[in-house]
Amino acid sequence: MNLAQADRPTIKWSWIGDNSDKIFARFIEHIELTVLAVAIGLLISVPLAIYAYRHRWFYTPLTSVTGILYTIPSLALFAFLLPYTGLTVQTAEIGLVGYTLLILIRNIVAGLAGVPPDVREAARGMGFSSGQMLWRVEMPLALPVIMAGVRLATVTTVGLVTVTALIGKGGLGFFILSGMRTDFITAILVGSILSLVLAVTVDGLLVYLERRITPWSRSRAGQRRPAPKTQSSIGPRVA
């Protein structure tokens, strides 16, 4: 692809048309990298968060470790991994997954802790085992808070995927990087704007999904009842 074809501060619309297949391929790559990271992040976070919810001592060390991971700048995290995993998808994914953990774990625990005690009491009275209680009562009721975490994790990941251009992946970040290297604003804008559009769209889709899978919370959202004070019950540890 010929990126170095203009260094005037004008947008070359024809370039977008000429390269639409490449743009589309990178767009798909961006989605794949994001979905994979959030999915793996959830697979790791759900059991850890459930354990931390049941054994409170585990919560502080867990969020401390994931918090440190979250604080490490993305380029540094990728740099740590590069000598071992090289310019591979693994390097990108390990880093991206790492950033989802703190957000997901905190929201899952907060969601579970926000389940009203009388609901839990009623379920126990009905003879629910602790497993049944978790998957049929607590997790469904925690879903709105969990979904808020999934949304934040996803939007964050969409942004971070662009940085992986520096380690040979990048999705739409590829265009940002190559645009920088060749002084070509069209590519930079295509990469930035599409990634922004992707973040906003995915966020909207997740809101829609949440409404679909938690129909009971719809009326609550409509009536603007105060949100459950879930965060306060997990202790003073903050961002």
Binding site: G159, V163, M180, I185
Partner: peptide, 14 residues
Amino acid sequence: RALPSFGILGITFF
């Protein structure tokens, strides 16, 4: 929140 920091840098650089 949605704007990629890398993208902002690209635009300001240009």
